[in-house]
């Protein structure tokens, strides 16, 4: 219990510090936009989340959240599938390893944002380019991490499976796959940060909805009362996603003992 109080302390200090500073600035200049008061936040949140937008007739926050999460989910989902398949293939099959591993290593060195213009040119300004950016950004890491883990499976285990009568496919489904699943989840957790980064960046540049789009749109009005709640909301969503994955990992991989629960 004591530790949860300790956890709360820095957060409380930050919040108090913000509103103190906000109060000081606003008492000097009531029109100051840099550090809005709690009332302004309330009004902005109410307008964006609980009132229909006068122009579009939509609830802006939820439309933005839905658009962003759909892109993020699709990007992470596809990346995970590719990472798992190629990771196991590269880790398990020497021919595929010598063919593909150098390519994956080179691709992982390309700064994804540098090729964002190429993606916009090829895929247009719609959803595909944004999802592809996330995929290009995190898949090489997932492939390399998972193939490394597959290669760490002791040769003894594979030989043992063969002596028990396993065919190659069964070695994948009963040995390689379950052994790398915990690593897959932790690798996806580590990829969440970059995935958000690529999402927000691509939305900032070209989109018609999405949280990154909104933040960059209202930036020109110095609308800190919108930007800050959006940033907090993105942080909350990122935390929940991370928590969900950690929860799954802890529940599903009892065989790893404490190892799956760390971080």
């Amino acid at each position: 219990m004591a530790s949860s109080y300790l956890t709360a302390i820095p957060f409380i200090i930050l919040i108090v510090a913000y509103f103190t500073a906000s109060h000081i600035r606003l008492s000097e200049n009531p029109n100051d936009k840099l550090l809005p008061s709690i009332e302004k936040f309330g009004a902005a949140i109410n307008r964006l989340a609980f009132e229909e937008d006068r122009r579009t007739g939509q609830y802006t926050l939820w439309v933005d959240t839905g658009a962003s999460l759909a892109r993020l989910g699709m990007g992470i989902g596809i990346s995970t599938a590719i990472g798992l398949i190629l990771g196991i293939a590269i880790g398990l099959i020497p021919y595929i390893r010598s063919t593909l591993a150098p390519l994956v290593a080179v691709i992982s060195l390309i700064p994804p944002l540098a090729i964002l213009p190429i993606l916009f040119i090829i895929f247009g300004l719609g959803e595909v380019a944004k999802v592809v950016l996330i995929i290009i950004g995190i898949t090489p890491f997932l492939i390399r991490d998972l193939s490394q883990r597959v290669m760490e499976i002791p040769i003894e285990q594979i030989v043992k499976a063969q002596t028990l009568g396993a065919n190659s496919w069964q070695i994948i489904t009963r040995l390689a796959l379950p052994q790398v699943l915990p690593r897959l989840i932790s690798a996806v957790r580590l990829s969440l940060g970059p995935a958000w980064l690529y999402l927000i960046s691509s939305e900032a540049i070209a989109a018609t909805a999405g949280m990154g789009y909104r933040i960059f749109l209202v930036r020109r009005y110095l609308a800190m009362d919108v930007i800050i709640p959006y940033v907090v909301w993105i942080t909350v969503l990122a935390f929940l996603l991370d928590y969900l994955l950690r929860f799954i990992s802890r529940r599903s991989f009892k065989w790893m003992g404490g190892e799956a629960t760390t971080l």
């Binding site: 028990l164 396993a166 009963r174 379950p178 991989f253």
Partner: peptide
């Protein structure tokens, strides 16, 4: 070392050979 499968319980380790025989596709 590494003779048993760490992600399977004792009983799951023991029925694994039967599973390989009877379920060629997924081994389960």
């Amino acid at each position: 070392r590494y003779s048993v499968f760490s992600h399977l319980s004792v009983i799951e380790n023991l029925i694994l050979a039967t599973e390989f025989d009877q379920a060629p596709m997924f081994g389960r």
